[in-house]
Each structure stands twice: as structure tokens, then as C-alpha cells.
Design a protein around this nucleic acid. Sequence first.
DNA 1: TATTTGTACTTGTATTTACAAGTCAGAGTT
DNA 2: AACTCTGACTTGTAAATACAAGTACAAATA
Lengths: 238, 238
Amino acid sequence: MSPGNIPQYRQLYETLRRHIVDGLYREGDLLPSENELCKLHGLTRPTVRKSLDLLAHEGFIKRHQGLGSVVHKLPKGIGILSISGTTTAIGKENLETRTIIRPGLSPWPDDFPFSLSDNEREAGCMHFTRLRLVNGKPVIYDISYIPNINLPRFSARNLNNKSLFNILRAAYRIEVKGGEQYIKAINAPDPEICRILDIKHDTPVLHLQRRIDTSRLNFYIYSILYCNTSDHSLYGIF
Amino acid sequence: MSPGNIPQYRQLYETLRRHIVDGLYREGDLLPSENELCKLHGLTRPTVRKSLDLLAHEGFIKRHQGLGSVVHKLPKGIGILSISGTTTAIGKENLETRTIIRPGLSPWPDDFPFSLSDNEREAGCMHFTRLRLVNGKPVIYDISYIPNINLPRFSARNLNNKSLFNILRAAYRIEVKGGEQYIKAINAPDPEICRILDIKHDTPVLHLQRRIDTSRLNFYIYSILYCNTSDHSLYGIF
DNA sequence: TATTTGTACTTGTATTTACAAGTCAGAGTT
DNA sequence: AACTCTGACTTGTAAATACAAGTACAAATA
């Protein structure tokens, strides 16, 4: 493999993705053909195709037999349903993250929506919450739970600027692989959450319960989200 | 290629998927290894891997380097966020579909949430609505719009028993490839919809706007969903 | 006994090659 | 002018092969 142990298909994926997000390719443009990409980057077609698989899977391109890979329009909502996270979709300029409750140990909640393994119960729970603001207005309140297993100095890290996923990858070599989520529409449940999201008591909000898979076997990240969708939809591709 | 023009990786995918859904493999079980699957089905590893890619992508298995492919627990919610549709997740027994407005021509709505191409506007719009009930209780109201291009006898077909996607595939050779959707939480907007979903006026409901991609170039299916999530969450993997 | 090492498995990544099938544009025909 | 055909492209499917890297377990070692 290549520099930094990052596979080549992943590197090409990141490159193309950046080019699309930066506007180098616009909506409707044809990407270079697979064979052209092979020559350009010194790769073979299966490798190039794997990169394009990722891009297509995340909705950046759509492929057409006999035609080529067409650049899709960029999602306008908040792409929280995809693994790419919130930053891509809405533009970094407008997105702000504030830590409300700093990381600290606490017992697992009694009404935890996912079933926990014995190991997870034993390890205990690292808990913290963050607020995501778009153009200065609160949109998502993110309540996170992580099993407290061997993450030295985790609570000291600054979660505001860097994304949680980046910290996990850089500091602990834990890669986020995917996850599952349950979605409901509810009325804002809690005066506390109403205050944080700056909404009235009976405002409908999206309620998401997510379990996020990592490259570490049996290590999951849990998070519960409350999302005010009056101004911004959530966006997902499938 | 093999019988019926269905690629081999797709056939193996369908087989394994059925085995998992039918309970032949249970949660936590190891699937046969890739090499075993090769021998069993007379395929090569890249082909087998492509099948497993699909299964992993839809959340049926999780693969672990050095260990194997572990069968994931079946989703408990309504898997409407994934391409597999609603039928898999909740069990066919409990799911019922009723056509409320039968297919017919109508103009495109003025406030249509997606931008339409000239061809689509020209073709006009086939419109129909369906109600999905779980255990006899209405859960999802699905308002569909399809461009009216060359689908002979479409309005005569029975949408209750067979899924729309199956009809498109069997009768018109149109394959559903994926799609995108915007999700909001709103208060039930419309007395009509409240009546159909059997909910009170201020009940929070999920509001989904979906554009579904097909194998036919520039042919999209549009649908707007209202979903009562008080009893059933929507479920998605990513 | 507790630890390390090795080995045999697993999936992950990558190359090479071949043919099938869809799209498009231009040449040729009617 | 309208149509058909052909050829040069595109992506889709499939095989055979090789090595890297993670996991689990048994054997060897301290």
C-alpha cells in the first residue's frame, strides 16, 4: 500500500470528492472516464472503479453505462444521514460546533435505546453533548455516549473545531465504518432542550438515535440527536 | 452473463439475503467464508465479494478482517431510508398497502419540491397515493408523482399487492438504482392527511421528499411521504 | 502458569485481462 | 430530410492471481 497506509482507491476518492466539493467539476459535468483516470493517477480500472463506487454511493456522481460518470448536484440539506457528516453539505463557513457538556464519566442512562454488551456496561460511559449551529442559529443538539475503554486524555481534547471522527482516527486509529439509526418526529420533549435549540415547547423536532460502527471490533459510538428542521432539512441518499 | 440477464453477484446477494431474512443465519452467526462461497456457488472471489459488499452496505452483515462476515441483527423499524423498501424490515404479514388515489394524469403541483426538466414538464404527470398500514394502523401516506412517458397500461395496474418497484422492473424493465431525500419534522399539515393517518392536528409527523433514480436515463420517480412515527421509527443504515 | 510466537485461517487491497452492453455521433442510405 | 447503420467510445460484469493485514488458536517458551 501507499503513503500513510491509506489505500489508493481511498486517496483517489478523496481527491475527486474535493474537486467536486470545490466546484472544479460542476453539476452535470462528466468526470474523466475510468480509463483516463487510470492513466492520470497510475492506477488500474478496478481500483479506479472502487473510488467511483464510493462517490456514487455517497451521491456525488451518478454513473451511466455508455456515457460516463455525471457529477450530481451537491446536497442542499444537512447530510447527517450519510457517513460524511455535517461539514460537507452545508459548507464549513456556516457551521459551528459548541461543546455544551464537556466529556466526563457518567453511568449509562437507564432508558438507553440500544442494548449494551457486558463489556460496555463494565467499562462505563464517557458522556458529552455538543450543539451544531448553522449561520449562528442552533440546529442540532448531539448527545454522545462512548464506552470508556482505553482512550487516554480523551476528555482533555477540544471537540469544537475538529470533528469527533477525526480525533478518533488521528489519536486512536479508530476508523468510523458506518452505523444505524432510528428516526422519529416528536414534539420537543424537554425544557432544557428547548432552551438549547431556542425553540418553543411544542415545536416538532427530529429525534435520531444512532449507533456508529468503528474499525475496532465491538466498539460503538452512541449518539442521540435532536434536530430543529424548520429551516434545514436533513438530507440523505440511498 | 447468466439466466434472465441477472448478474451472478446479484443472484448470490439475493440468495444470501433471503437466507438471512428467513432466519437460516441468525444474528451473530458467521457467513461461510468468501472462499467457501466461491466453491459453493462456482464463482470467483471478486464476484462473491461484490455480493457481500451489497449485503454489508444494506446492513445485513458486518465484515471483519481476519474473522469473517457476521450476520447483523435485522432492523426493527421501517427501513424506508434504504432502497430495500418497507417490506423487509417489518415482515410481510403485518404490512398492508391501500391505494387511496388511483393512478391518473394530473398537472405537476405548483409547489413541487424538486426542479423538473423540460422533458418532465412536457410529458405531464402521473399521480397516485397509497397508504401503508402496519398491523392495521395507518403509518405512512405516500404521494407519488411519475413523469408520464411511455408506460402503457400503467394506470390499470394494481398497486396494492405488488410493489411499485416490482411492477416497474417486471413490466417496463426499469430498475430502481437509488435516490435522495429530504427529511423534516412537521406538525400534521392538512386535515385530509390527519384523517388518512388517523392522527390529531398537532401530532408531529415525519415529512420526506424523495427523488428516486432509475436505470432509465433522466427518469425519476418522485414521492412525498407523511409518516406517523409514534409507534414505529424509521430505520436507516449508513 | 503466563506470555510469546507461529500458523492457518479470514477479509482487504491491487493488478491484469476479457468480453458484454449502453450511448453517441457521424457516415451512409433511403 | 429522415432514417439506419457502424464504429468508437463509455461503464458493467467476470475471471484468475497475488500479496497485505487482522484474528484466533495452538504450540513453544519464559
